[in-house]
Amino acid sequence: MTGVDRSPTRTSGQVAVLAGVAAAVALATGSLPSLALGGPGVAALAIGVRRGERSFVSIGGFGLFLAALLAGVAGAPVPTTLVGAALAVLAWDAGTGAIELGDQVGRSAATRGAELAHLSGTVTVAAVAGGLAYGTYAATAGERPVTALVLLTFGAVALASGLRLMPVSDGGR
């Protein structure tokens, strides 16, 4: 049992780095200053995926997320910002997934099926939530102040936190 290669798995690792690069580029097209956060973010992410350092991946993902916020504040188009943020989340999720799966199952195992299933879930959420959010925004733009929307969203957050948490149990119950 010695000598199992526990470095991050390939598929998710590649998806993470590609999504990170795509996020940084997409945000830079919207607002060039965001590259100041996005560039280092991608670098940290790539190092983290390469070395299997979860904290690097998290820092990189958070950097990309901040880059998306910066782009949004600096006036990048809303769709660009949303796509950039979604790619940042995807990069972070795929990166941590690659490290975790590598740790549990190993790099040499066939893991692509599970990785793709998980990532498809992540992408679907981004598409549905982003689409809904942007659709609502586009339909109601200019009619309501942002403050009202913010308050509404806090309501949504409260609702989300009210969602039942899984009953974590030891040995069944």
Binding site: F65, A68, L69, A71, G72, V73, A76, P77, V78, T81, L82, A85, A86, V89, V125, A126, V128, A129, G130, A133, Y134, Y137, A141, V146, T147, L149, V150, T153, F154, A156, V157, A160, S161
Partner: peptide, 24 residues
């Protein structure tokens, strides 16, 4: 993101926050 969106009155940042809530 929601906070930044509120302070900066930026719809884009706010919508990013909304997507984040969906992930949560």
């Amino acid at each position: 993101a929601i906070g930044v969106g509120a302070l900066a009155q930026s719809p884009a940042a706010f919508l990013v926050g909304a997507v984040g809530v969906a992930y949560a």
